[in-house]
Design a protein around this nucleic acid. Structure first.
Length: 261
DNA sequence: ATGGTTGCATGGCAA
């Protein structure tokens, strides 16, 4: 089974690149973030035409929004309103074999990395704390966690560790919060399972600096984790870096993990 | 140097 996660930054204007990604990776399940559309206008017919007739969708007008698309039928799981907000940042699907798939869109957190002077940053830290608490409360099991976590935890997950220490997405407090989530179920980073941690790896390049691909000022914000019972099932991982160069694409690229399930 | 670009929705916000 191949699972892709992609912050698509509007579903309705990305149908062409979505099709192109499917042509490259042929995933069984696609987890999307930042749909930027209400459930009523989600393009179900287009998704079915692309080979994904089964969709769980949690949308919102203009902002956020998550979806899980599948070739085969999916059962919905227990999605949360994180931080008590119905803001469409979490979705759960039950996969065959008793596997629970979580799709998250963690708040970006604004520009100032100070929870006392920036409510968006406070919300981000609370959100990540709630993820940790939620998984601490669950018994161990077969789980997959994907999404735009908006945090680049390793030094090699950013183009300059020293310059990004004070930039939201790579600050020590965010990384510390994310490690608590990682410990909550002894999660395994499925992409770093295949790409050594001393090698630079990014999934996002800002629209604002037009340095792509020359200066390569990226960050690894998009992740796929699995719980220990699934570690032995990991077959491969791929960051579809070339997608950042496609016309009319997202500022994030798709991340794919293949499991023997 | 404190910019830069994009999407949604149509002014300004969020990323």
């Amino acid at each position: 089974m191949r699972i892709v996660t992609w912050n698509i930054n509007s579903i309705r204007i990305r149908l062409r690149v979505l099709k192109r990604m499917i042509g490259k990776l042929d995933p069984d399940v696609i987890c999307l973030q930042e749909l930027k559309c209400e459930d009523g206008v989600f393009p179900h017919a287009d998704m079915a035409k692309l080979g994904y007739p089964h969709a769980l969708v949690r949308g919102l007008k203009s902002y956020n929004g998550v979806a899980i698309l599948s070739k085969k039928k999916l059962d919905p799981g227990d999605a949360r309103h994180m931080c008590g907000r119905p803001d469409s940042r979490h979705l759960v699907a039950q996969l065959p074999g008793g596997i629970e798939l979580h799709n998250f869109y963690v708040p970006a957190g604004g520009d100032i990395p100070d929870p006392f002077n920036n409510v968006k940053f406070a919300h981000k830290l609370s959100f990540v704390s709630e993820m940790a608490h939620m998984f601490e409360m669950c018994p161990p099991g077969k789980r997959i966690l994907v999404g735009d976590l908006n945090i680049a935890p390793l030094d090699t997950d950013v183009w300059s560790h020293s310059q990004l220490q004070t930039v939201v997405s790579h600050t020590p407090i965010e990384v510390e919060h994310l490690w608590k989530v990682k410990c909550s179920q002894s999660w395994v980073d499925a992409v770093r399972h295949f790409v050594p941690p001393d090698r630079k790896l990014y999934t996002w390049w800002s629209y604002r600096n037009r340095t792509w691909p020359g200066e390569d000022r990226g960050r690894r914000l998009d992740h796929v984790w699995v719980t220990p019972p699934l570690e032995g099932k990991l077959k491969s991982a791929q960051v579809l870096r070339e997608a950042r160069g496609w016309n009319g694409t997202s500022d994030h690229v798709p991340v794919m993990v293949e499991l023997a399930i």
